[in-house]
Amino acid sequence: MEFKELDPILHSQLRLAVMSLLISVKEAEFTFLKEKTNATSGNLSVQISKLKEAGYIEIIKQFNNNYPQTICKITQQGIDAFENYVKALQSYMKL
């Protein structure tokens, strides 16, 4: 049986949680991700920056009625990486 390597970007608790949330929705605000993952703002910021650097998510910073907003959105590259990660996991689980 051939083992696929697990993507190190996704094989981290918080980054995987963020990607799992973003794959289910069109886009989500930073506050939504923070609430659902119970992460601290600092840690979440670092992890979403890593996902952005990998090209897995897009981060849009904007103002809504004078309130700063950070919106995160999964990219096609992110969707492909997530699917590959799940396939790799499945190959391990079948063992």
Partner: peptide, 24 residues
């Protein structure tokens, strides 16, 4: 949420729980 090394089973559980949180 703290950073820790995930087992394959934990990864699956995390994915499922997050997807459920978002889609519910």
């Amino acid at each position: 949420m703290e950073e820790k090394q995930l087992s394959e089973k934990e990864s699956f559980e995390l994915i499922t729980s997050m997807i459920n949180k978002a889609k519910g």
